[in-house]
Write a protein that binds this DNA or RNA. Structure first.
Lengths: 213, 213
DNA sequence: TAGATTGTTAATCGATTAACAATC
DNA sequence: TAGATTGTTAATCGATTAACAATC
């Protein structure tokens, strides 16, 4: 398996392949070909083949890939096997939803706790996860060496929280606030603007209909 | 303003420009240049200039763009001015969080209601939004001509809900379940795999450190 | 006028697609 | 052996970057 120069697009497609194979359930064949996956996901078969070749070296002509082995290789490659911790700041509805979402575990992600300024919501127990007051944030991050922070606070507070996270040793930020965060060199930021995503879908739908008229 | 052939990448960057300008608050200058935006967002200035040129024609050499006018043009272009309706299926934590999230309004999106099989959570009132039983879904979609559906149900049920939505006249689906949805030709699907997104961030962080050692 | 900025045209880069060779 | 499939090499396409002309 050669790791170098996997394109961003490939990285985004790999989880799709994984999902598809995992969802086969009882219909899981012992072997699966790039063409089969491509057809199911409506992708070009050469794209899928190249993506898989970047991750696995176990493809056999005529046979394809051993499904189980390919799933394992994808999970390994995507880092789903070594668990990584993250914390959430902002225990509003979105923060709580993320805190208790069960799906992160399958991807090797563990949400340690959430933090909120509102003392009311704090110390509650959410399916085993705790919501703590802000003053405990820095200490916990340092003690547990948490490197990933999730920002689920209102836009107005996002930059201040971002600064605090960085001060606490956080190196990567998943930002749900619809603001651009100003961070020092070397800090990773991934913006997740849910409203803009939905609006984009709406725009694409409108355009499709305009094109047909 | 010429609309044709706006690239996917441009479409994803436009909301960033909009966010940036909206966040300036009291510091909002009367005019703003592509270079200024590019520096703040750490993008190449030619990229920003081209993106803006695709949306606006009001840029003046030496002066730049009128900030207010540019904001208005971006909002208009992204369709934030004409309101579009959407419904949510699945009123778990994520569904409820989306149902009551205030940020959709700014992007011209209106969540009409959520639906759930669990009668317990139904008929509750969430900041003016209602959670209804599944049997009311088809009728409401048809009556209000809702074209956008949001899937926030467990992965196992996502395909069945997807089929129901399409039967109800839904044309675009925002899918939060980590499954590939099989849809007929012409139905738009945007997959939002939150767990995979976070895991990708974790992987990128790991890789960065590996590269430095 | 000079300089900053827009906007356009050409060059480069990267990703996708096509064609083909290798192999079980 | 023949055919399906992998994997590789070349061609195409699209997006980014660079260079430059236009203009307020």
């Amino acid at each position: 398996m050669v790791n170098r120069s996997i394109s961003k697009q490939t990285l985004l497609r790999l989880p799709l392949y994984l999902n598809y194979m995992k969802q086969l359930g009882e219909n899981t064949p012992e072997h699966i070909s790039a063409t089969t996956i491509a057809e199911a996901l409506r992708l070009n078969h050469v794209v899928v083949r190249k993506d898989l070749a970047a991750v696995s070296s176990a493809g056999k002509p005529k046979v394809g890939y051993n499904t189980e082995a390919l799933i394992a290789e994808l999970e390994e490659f995507l880092g789903y096997n070594d668990v990584d911790d993250a914390i959430i700041v902002g225990a509003g509805k979105l923060g709580k939803a993320l805190l208790t979402y069960g799906g992160f575990k399958d991807c090797g992600m563990n949400i340690v706790a959430a933090f909120d300024i509102d003392e009311e919501v704090c110390e509650e127990d959410y399916s085993g996860k705790r919501i703590l007051t802000m003053d405990k944030l820095m200490d916990l991050c340092e003690r547990m060496r948490v490197r990933i922070g999730i920002i689920a606070v209102p836009a107005e507070n996002a930059q201040a929280i971002c600064n605090l996270l960085i001060e606490s040793g956080i190196l990567a930020i998943w930002n749900f606030a619809p603001v651009h965060l100003d961070v020092p060199e070397g800090i990773l930021v991934h913006n997740e603007n849910l409203a803009a995503s939905l609006a984009l879908l709406s725009k694409q739908l409108k355009e499709k209909f305009d094109a047909n008229t």
